[in-house]
Design a binder for these strands. Structure first.
Lengths: 256, 256
DNA sequence: AAACAACGGTGTAAATAATGAACCGACAAG
DNA sequence: CTTGTCGGTTCATTATTTACACCGTTGTTT
């Protein structure tokens, strides 16, 4: 495997729960030799991608990622555009709203606004969303370039909950449905008790570049409740696409 | 040179002015073969660090950096803590304030709030600050671990303006002065007509982990004006250090 | 206190993965 | 039509990465 790829994969072991990892742990987690991991970490530390806690000697994400994020934000003001939309959406729906953008072979969650109800869905910031198991992933896949969609369908699908689609046929069915309806549903395919609704975001090329989604506790889900959510979600997604400089293709209509 | 290091160095060619770079350009800029650069870019794209504009075929920073930044922010709420302090500082001083954190061998600018005066200093977001040529760098170097300080002093110092310190002796003098005064000055060492004042931020280990700085047009600089800036800067830096969970060492006193 | 295990980190010979020159088709300008 | 440049591919050579063993230290267990 390519060295750079392996090195960057190390970053995926950091989550909002596991913020610092020791050398040996990281070697075990990744299955890579300790010496190799150390060299990679040192290389990434040069660029500020990771840094070492001088006391615990453990490693964590570095300040360099903040710098890079600021740089990207300066050119494509994603946060500035999307966060207000997200906040309004969460307020209107009373449910947790989140937005994700394509990043490598999956979707990267880049913004979350939680509902302020007691019973609400919590979504980890910085989560990577699998394309086949989330409403966001389905909405994205439905409207991405055909080549990419084909690659997604050809993947080995890992089950996450009991209702995660694991055959090519079941996934293709959900994707086709999303194409027809203009939005996607994911009923407990990623986490139990969580129902997702998502609408794709489009880039300047008219293909999807991400998704805007609302996550609902299954206990609250009814047909009419979903319609209400969609009535807020659809225009929010349109605003988001336009705010990012994207172009909504004529064949995308959210069937309310 | 190590491959991972080389690959990540590619990211440094993206600035807030140069947001998209073509393959051949990037190969020329970095002095690395086209084929190698392409492989590195593809590897980094897997992790979402970069992405390719499907129309122009050129490359830019990817959404993955936003994800990583959110992750780091979730654990160490740098922005949340520092931005209000920065805004207050900019308001109090009427000058552009910025904050930077150690990132690899240099400082990464992670926040800027510009003054609202007509004549003000503009600072690019996501800039990398050289340690020897900026007030922030001097303040950081003065209070970092001795080993690191030694390495900085041993560097080959690149001149940026006419007054950038380029000998070990001149830099050591500025650093010592910063140690004595608890703050640092940089008179047009990075950009002409810009005067910098900086106070270090401290980590939990009692050594500097970054700097809080104010950038002033030289035309406004007088002794009493500087004292006024420092009177706002010193407590702001203290708040920032404490807000980040750092510990101010007893020997650090800002001599007003 | 002794023994032990696990930690971060270092050196080395062996092998794998990175490298770069040549090449390709596409496109644009002259 | 020729020329130059673009993004991208190929493949033999080679230089870099790799993994094993080892080191000193730390902290836990017996």
């Amino acid at each position: 495997m390519r060295t750079v790829e392996k090195a960057l994969k190390l970053l995926d072991f950091f989550t909002d729960k596991v913020v610092e990892i020791g050398l040996s742990d990281l070697a075990r987690l990744s299955g890579i030799d300790k010496a190799t991991v150390l060299r990679m970490l040192n290389d990434m530390a040069e660029s500020g991608l990771v840094e070492q806690n001088p006391e615990s000697k453990r490693w964590r994400l570095g300040a360099g990622v903040l710098r890079l994020a600021r740089l990207r934000e300066a050119t494509q003001p994603v946060n500035r555009v999307l966060m207000p939309i997200l906040e309004r959406l969460a307020e209107q729906t009373g449910e947790t709203a989140h937005v994700s953008l394509v990043s490598g072979r999956d979707l990267a969650n880049i913004g979350v606004v939680e509902s302020n109800r007691a019973n609400r869905v919590h979504i980890e910031p910085g989560l990577t969303l699998p394309l086949h198991a989330t409403a966001s992933g389905l909405a994205f896949t439905a409207f991405t370039r055909p080549e990419r969609r084909e690659r997604v369908l050809a993947r080995k699908l890992t089950p996450i909950t009991g209702t995660t689609p694991i055959t090519r046929e079941s996934l293709a069915g959900l994707v086709t449905l999303a194409q027809q309806r203009g939005y996607s549903c994911a009923d407990q395919t990623y986490e139990a008790e969580v129902h997702g609704l998502a609408v794709p975001l489009f880039g300047p090329d008219g293909f999807s570049c991400g998704a805007l989604a609302v996550a609902i506790p299954t206990s609250r889900v009814t047909d009419s409740y979903q319609r209400g959510i969609l009535a807020a979600l659809a225009p929010a997604a349109r605003d988001a696409t336009l705010g990012l400089g994207g172009r909504i293709p004529p064949h995308h209509i959210v069937a309310l």
